[in-house]
Amino acid sequence: MNMAFVEPVTLAARGVKLVPMALSHESGLRAAAADGALWQLRVTSVPEPEQTRSYIENALAMREAGNHFPFCVQNGATGKVLGTTRYHDIVPAVKRVEIGWTWYSKSSQRTHVNTTCKLLLLTHAFETLGCQVVGWRTDNFNFASQAAIERLGARKDGVIRGHALRRDGTIRDTVMYSLRSGEWPEVKAQLLYLLDKPRV
């Protein structure tokens, strides 16, 4: 069963904690999404407030099936929910996972939170799970996401045209990126450098 590839785990560093998503996170995720009314962005997967519970239920169903492992992102000190991220398209046979379905409350954006989450997820993927490759995918119009993925040091693999539906009914092209295990040491050093750099 695929599920054995990603066992339930809590990851934490630098005041950020990733815990396995649960139904008990509903109110926290609802509040995080409301910070910036994130569901109004057409190129993201943020649920509308009344859809938060079904969003979690769907995520847990995909976890049960073994192809997703969703995390709730929390403030390590207070437990406040800051957003969510997950491993998805988990393929144990080739030791590959993708990182996505990531969003954070507006007040957590442009802070150390995303960089810390990526460091935690990539470290776990390469150093614990033994992944050969970690991938990302994003909307061709989500330029902020593309820039963030490229800043990590991931390589652009290409574009899948006419790949998926957006929430507004339009059809999106999907930009694919990946990072191989041999590239991880350099990327890890860069992430640590960014996190340790004094903020101005």
Rank of each mutant, 00 (worst) to 15 (best):
Asn2Cys: 08
Asn2Thr: 11
Phe5Trp: 02
Val6Leu: 03
Glu7Gln: 14
Val9Gly: 03
Leu11Pro: 12
Leu11His: 00
Ala13Asp: 12
Arg14Met: 08
Arg14Phe: 08
Gly15Lys: 10
Leu18Ser: 05
Ala22Met: 08
Ser27Val: 03
Leu29Gln: 01
Leu29Trp: 02
Ala31Glu: 15
Asp35Pro: 07
Gly36Tyr: 09
Ala37Gly: 04
Leu38Gln: 02
Trp39Glu: 14
Pro47Leu: 04
Glu48Met: 07
Glu48Ser: 11
Glu48His: 07
Pro49Gly: 00
Glu50Leu: 11
Glu50Thr: 00
Gln51Asn: 10
Thr52Ile: 03
Arg53Val: 10
Ser54Ala: 06
Ser54Ile: 11
Tyr55Val: 00
Tyr55Trp: 15
Glu57Trp: 00
Ala59Ser: 14
Ala61Arg: 08
Arg63Cys: 05
Glu64Gly: 00
Gly66Ala: 06
Gly66Tyr: 00
Gly66His: 00
Gly66Phe: 00
Cys72Gly: 09
Val73Gln: 05
Val73Arg: 04
Val73Phe: 03
Asn75Pro: 12
Asn75Gln: 10
Gly76Lys: 04
Ala77His: 13
Lys80Phe: 09
Val81Arg: 05
Thr85Cys: 14
Tyr87His: 02
Tyr87Phe: 14
Ile90Leu: 06
Pro92Met: 13
Pro92Leu: 06
Val94Ser: 11
Lys95Ile: 02
Arg96Thr: 10
Arg96Ser: 11
Ile99Arg: 04
Trp101Pro: 02
Thr102Asn: 07
Thr102Arg: 03
Thr102Glu: 09
Trp103Gly: 03
Tyr104Gln: 09
Ser105Pro: 09
Lys106Met: 10
Ser107Arg: 09
Gln109Tyr: 07
Gln109Cys: 10
Arg110Cys: 11
Val113Leu: 08
Val113Trp: 01
Asn114Ala: 06
Thr115Asn: 01
Thr115His: 05
Cys117Asn: 10
Leu120Tyr: 06
Leu120Ile: 04
Leu120His: 03
Leu121Lys: 02
Leu122His: 02
His124Ser: 06
Phe126His: 00
Glu127Lys: 01
Leu129Ile: 04
Cys131His: 01
Val133Tyr: 05
Val133Gly: 00
Val133Trp: 04
Val133Lys: 15
Val134Thr: 02
Gly135Ile: 07
Gly135Cys: 12
Trp136Cys: 04
Trp136Val: 02
Phe143Lys: 11
Ala144Phe: 06
Ser145Val: 05
Ser145Cys: 09
Glu150Lys: 11
Leu152Arg: 02
Asp157Tyr: 07
Gly158Thr: 12
Arg161Trp: 13
Gly162Ala: 11
Ala164Met: 15
Ala164Trp: 11
Arg166Cys: 15
Ile171Arg: 13
Asp173Cys: 13
Thr174Tyr: 12
Arg180Thr: 13
Ser181Lys: 08
Ser181Leu: 00
Glu183Lys: 10
Trp184Val: 01
Val187Gln: 04
Val187Asp: 08
Leu192His: 09
Leu192Thr: 10
Leu194Ser: 10
Pro198Phe: 03
Arg199His: 12
